[in-house]
Every structure is written in C-alpha cells, then in structure tokens.
Nucleic acid binder design. Structure first.
Length: 423
RNA sequence: GGAGAGAUGCCUGAGUGGCCGAAAGGAACAGUUUGCUAAACUGUCGUACUGGCAACGGUACCGAGGGUUCGAAUCCCUCUCUCUCCGCCA
C-alpha cells in the first residue's frame, strides 16, 4: 500500500510510474488525494469540537468538586450540541477513511526507475543467461514420464487421495525432496539467514499484511471453520513476524529463511503446459526474506539475486535472469527478478524463483518500522525471494540429467541424497 | 469439548468514573561521578492523525467493536485472543 502523503507530494511522478505498469485506473490517484483532503478537513472539524467538548467536561468536573451544582447543570445543557456534532462528524470521518482505504489498496506498487515498461511476459528483459543448454537424444522424456519410469513421483496416487496437483513422492523421489530442502536451508544459513519454522496457516491480518488480501483470496485455500488461510508462500508468515513492530535501526538488516510447503488453488490455470510438476497445488519451497534500511534495499536485491543464482550454479542448471517489465510484476513489487531454468525435454524455461523488492509497500500495511537513536520511526523495506521452489528444480534435474543409466544427481547434492543416480 | 481467570506503554505492574496518556519498578538512551567496569545520582524515554515557518498546540489510542455518561482504562453489551484446571489426544 502506498503512503497517502507520498501520493500527495508526488502526484505526477506516481501517475507516470504507474504507466510503466499499464495501470488501468490512473483516476484513482486524484480520487485518493480528494478523499484525503476530505478526511483532513473532517478530522480538523472533529478535533476542534472534541477539544471544546473536553474543555466543557473538565469544567463541569471542577464545578462539581466545588459544589457548584447549578452552574454545572447549566453547562451540561450546552454540551448536547457537541455530542450530536461529534457523532455525525465521527461517522463521516469513518466513512471517508473506509473509502480511502478501499481506494488505496487498489493502487499497485510503483515500479522502480530501472523497471522496463511493458504489459506482457514478452516485454521482460533477459538480464543474463548462464550455463549451456544440454542436447538430449531424440528419445528423451519429459519429467512426468521419467517420474513414472523410475517410480519416484506418483501423480495418480495423489489424485486419488487429494486431487490433481497434489503429487505423492516415492522412494528416491521423496528423498530428493528432503535433500533439496536441506541443501537450500544449509546454504541459506551459510549466507547469513536465520532459519525459522512458521505456521503454515495464517489469519486474515497476516494475509492483508503481505498483500494477499483483499483481492487474491481466491488463490489461497481457506479454512472456513477457523477463518485461516493455508499459506501460498513462507513470505506470508515470515514477513508478518514483523507486523506492528518497530525495530531498532541497528538490528537491520533482518535476514530470515524458512522451508514450508506452499498451497495454491491456481484457480483457472489448467492445460497442457501445466503438466507434471510445472504447476501444483502443494509444493515445497525455501524462502528468504529480508527487512532492510531503505538506503540498501536495491543493493540487497542484487545480493539476493546473486545468492539464488549461486544455488542454480551449484545444481549445474542452465538458467536465465529476467528483469520483469512493469505489467508482469506482482502487484506489490517495485522490482522483480525471475530466475528461470531450462527444462531440456520440454524445451522451455520454467520459473523457479522470483526475487522482489517491495520497498515500503508491505511495510506500510504491516506497520513495520525502524527507529534510530533519534528521529521518528520510518518504514523499513522488505524483500523476499524463492531459494528455491522445488518442483520445477526437480523437473529440470530429471529432464536435463537423464542418461541411459538413470537420472544423474548433481555433485553438490549427492551428500544430501546419499545416491548419485536415480535408476 | 466443559469450567474459571485475564488482556494497560519495551517488560513487570498499579489504576474501578473527572486531578490518567496513564503510578511505581525494571530495561534502554544521554549526562555527572569514575583509572576501567560496576554502583550511585540527574535527565530522557509510546504511536498515529492534525494545526503551525517554528516555538508550541489539538485529537485519538489502556485487546477489537458498540453502548451508558457532561465526562470512561475504569460501568454495560458483543466479539477476539491468551492463561489455568478438567476431558480428549500427539
């Protein structure tokens, strides 16, 4: 959520930066400013009437203590007008605030100046490519066939007990999951992230804090009886650890990592290109989250991108880094890098990580601030990234590393799996 | 699931209608003292909105929402959460 004060002071800039995103409702900006004007005016009126009413009430108290009952009673009569006015102004203020809030949450984050303009994934800019694309023999198989061939991932079985998009990992397939999780967590720890284990359900306030609610509730599984949501990513609980928190400036940067299963309804996204592991309702992911000083958030974004790339390099997967265009970025992000790995049998790039700087967009909702030795609390910047999401890593490992003898496990992972080959 | 207790500032905790944005202690920060540390002493020490160039004001907030009252942390109602005991269970 953008800050109203920022919108007021930088109206033209806000409008021009929103065009980078192809934002369709620029008129909202002026509506918000108008609503805020109304809000201020109403609040000022309310405050001054409250001040008068408070003064009168105080006076009555004094008179009563002095035993001047008659004077007190006559003053009481005069306070009735205050009551009506504060009530009606209070109602008006409340209504304006709701309208303002409802409008504010419709504004996406402002793209950073380095974000390319554009509206579709085709407008994303390839920032770099790394590794060589493997040449597979003609009889190479896509990962879902390899998974069946070696009996390591069972989509049918998952289908039976839960539904499509909930695979069952078996034997070496299950062990590969566990190995990847440990591999990612160990590296995150080495890189200075503190491992956390959060709940995998969150309440409404948390969903709002990171921007899933309102608006994207259809993407999350909702437990109606208890009004809880299954997390779509560890970003939600981990970032919300700092909701309504004022940290000391010297505590920044805060660097946390967490492994969690992630749950996504993915309503409406079915089709041939979501086969196998490409898109799931439940998957595993290790997430990295940072809370940083505004001055350093963009260097931290680069650092996180480099870190994610280092994982892909260790896994010997060919990848590319995209700088997302304004139109393809998430609603809450100011700048996002997507990492995509090459899936050789499908012959396509698959997104395995998304690293974003949210600047103050989340922290404004979260009321996540920091405070130096002096001065007022100010909003911190938040960032997060997948490091990494498992299914598509597994998909590309299977496809890229298929040999006649079986699936070759990358060297860096062998000490985690305990085997070099899936056969 | 049943019964009970509770929710106050960074923490502990007092406050049961006006003198309370809130005692006291602790923590933290600054200073004095000190060879250093400690101790002692002094001071500072919530957030948001809002008016003002500023100095300095105003308003709101004692879990959330509503009500009573001239006036609510304090009384009433609803909700949420936490804790304790019992039951169940990993």
């Amino acid at each position: 959520m953008l800050q109203v004060s920022y919108i007021r002071e930088n109206r033209d800039e806000v409008l021009s930066r929103l065009t980078v995103r192809n934002f369709k409702q620029p008129e909202l900006v002026d509506q918000i400013i108008q609503l805020d004007d109304d809000r201020r005016q109403t609040q000022t009126q309310l405050d001054s009437i409250s001040a008068e009413a408070n003064a009168a009430a105080k006076k009555i108290g004094e008179l009563m203590r002095q035993g001047l009952k008659q004077e007190a009673d006559s003053l009481k009569q005069q306070t009735n007008a205050f009551k009506e006015q504060t009530k009606s102004l209070g109602d008006k203020l409340g209504a304006i605030e709701i309208l303002l809030q409802n409008s504010l949450v419709l504004l996406p984050n402002l793209p950073h100046s380095s974000v390319p303009k554009g509206s579709t994934p085709d407008d994303n800019v390839v920032a770099l490519e790394h590794g060589t694309i493997p040449q597979l023999p003609a009889n190479a198989l896509p990962h879902w066939e390899l998974a069946a061939k070696y009996d390591i991932i069972d989509f049918e079985l998952g289908n039976k007990i839960a539904g499509a998009g909930f695979p069952v990992y078996k034997g070496k397939g299950a062990k590969l999951q566990r190995a990847l999780i440990n591999f990612f967590l160990d590296h995150a720890e080495t890189a200075g992230y503190r491992e956390m284990q959060p709940p995998v359900v969150v309440n409404e306030a948390s969903g709002f804090g990171t921007g899933q609610l309102p608006d994207k509730e259809g993407q999350m599984y909702h437990i109606g009886a208890d009004n809880l949501y299954l997390i779509p990513t560890a970003e939600v609980p981990i970032t919300n650890l700092y909701r309504d928190v004022i940290v000391k400036e010297e505590e920044l940067p805060i660097r946390n990592t967490a492994y969690t299963p992630c749950f996504r309804r993915e309503a409406g996204s079915y089709g041939a290109h979501v086969r196998g592991l490409n898109r799931l309702h439940q998957f595993d992911k290790v997430e990295i989250v940072q809370v940083v000083h505004p001055e350093s958030s963009y260097s931290v974004l680069e650092e996180m991108s480099t870190y994610v790339q280092s994982l892909l390099q260790k896994l010997q997967l060919p990848y590319r880094v995209l700088s997302l265009c304004g139109g393809d970025m998430g609603f809450t992000s100011a700048k996002t890098y997507d990492m995509e790995v090459w899936c050789a049998a499908q012959a396509r790039w698959l997104e395995v990580s998304s690293v974003s700087n949210f600047e103050t967009y989340q922290s404004n909702r979260l009321k996540l601030r920091f405070k130096g030795k002096e001065g007022k609390p100010q909003l911190a910047h938040t960032l997060n990234g997948s490091a990494l999401a498992l299914p598509r890593i597994v998909a590309s490992l299977l496809e890229n590393n298929q040999t006649e003898r079986g699936i070759r496990i990358p060297e860096a992972l062998v000490r985690y799996t305990g085997f070099e080959l899936i056969n």
